[in-house]
């Protein structure tokens, strides 16, 4: 199949080179790059990325679920359609334009900042929390999109069967509703983590390098902003990222499969 050949060349070769480069230092096999990528400023960046991604995933997961439940239980079909379409659009809204929209809103000379005089109260968008706020902008809609099908899949018969067996509303949620939804909810959270973890454009356009993130560090190293002889550290950092992202997928896929089976 031509597709497979294409992927092997265009995708496989860079990945092999990346792997090779990671374990090469001054022409010989070495784990020095990998070790270095897990130390000092690099480690801080990696942990920073994990920290912000985890925070965005949990917050986005919880808030997105509430929004999804509000929409699903609403009787207005148009509201539901509107929110779902908007979510589809917003979940794809990332990169540079997203950063600029927020800078224009809550940046140092942003419209809301100046209108409310937030500047005098020490407000700044260009830090960890500001970035979290911005990441949530595409993460919450993504969670809505993941969770709505699961909420729709909760059959009314289950609630009625539970009542019929003497269960209260709380007991229904505890023994049936929440367990049934858990794979979908966790699956969504894992996706959000992955999205925030690999985001680069928004962070670059917004905070430059004031918040330590692994994607920013890799970009720095690739654009030559690194000591001679340490170029391959970027490759090692990339490998670290792939390992983390791979773990995330390894968690996500089984959850997704189970959810699909239950909510068939």
């Amino acid at each position: 199949m031509p597709l497979l050949v294409f992927v092997v060349i265009v995708f496989g070769v860079p990945m092999l080179v990346l792997l090779g480069g990671t374990f090469t230092k001054e022409g010989a096999f070495s784990t020095a790059n990998l070790t270095e990528s897990l130390q000092g400023a690099y480690l801080t960046a990696l942990l920073g990325s994990v920290k912000i991604s985890a925070l965005v995933a949990v917050l986005g997961g919880v808030l997105g679920t509430f929004l999804a439940q509000a929409v699903v239980t609403s009787r207005f079909r148009t509201l539901r359609e509107a929110v779902l379409t908007a979510s589809g659009v917003l979940a794809n809204f990332g990169g540079v334009p997203l950063a600029f929209a927020w800078i224009a809103t809550l940046g140092n000379s942003g419209v809301v900042t100046t209108t409310l005089g937030l500047g005098q109260h020490g407000w700044s968008l260009y830090n960890f929390w500001g970035l979290t706020l911005v990441y949530l902008y595409f993460s919450i809609p993504l969670q809505v999109l993941t969770v709505v099908p699961a909420l729709d899949g909760l059959r009314p018969q289950w609630r009625e069967a539970a009542q019929n067996n003497g269960a209260s509303t709380w007991q229904f949620w505890r023994y049936v509703g929440i367990p049934v939804l858990t794979p979908a909810l966790l699956g969504g959270v894992v996706l959000l983590f992955g999205g925030a973890f690999s985001a680069y454009a928004t962070a670059q356009a917004m905070v430059g390098s004031t918040v330590p993130l692994v994607t920013l560090k890799i970009a720095d190293a690739l654009t030559g902003n690194v000591l001679i002889g340490h170029e391959n550290v970027a490759l090692a950092l990339s490998l670290d990222m792939i390992v983390v992202a791979g773990l995330v997928m390894a968690v996500y896929l089984p959850l997704q499969r189970r959810s699909a089976r239950w909510l068939r």
Binding site: V7, M15, L18, S198, Y200, S238
Partner: peptide, 25 residues
């Protein structure tokens, strides 16, 4: 299954690591 895996890989590998590989090549 092969195709499914091939088509999930780009989702697992963050674009920035992909570009790291490309630029090295």
């Amino acid at each position: 299954p092969v195709l499914e895996v091939v088509c999930t890989l780009p989702l697992v590998v963050p674009p920035i690591t992909f570009v790291a590989g490309i630029s090295t090549v």
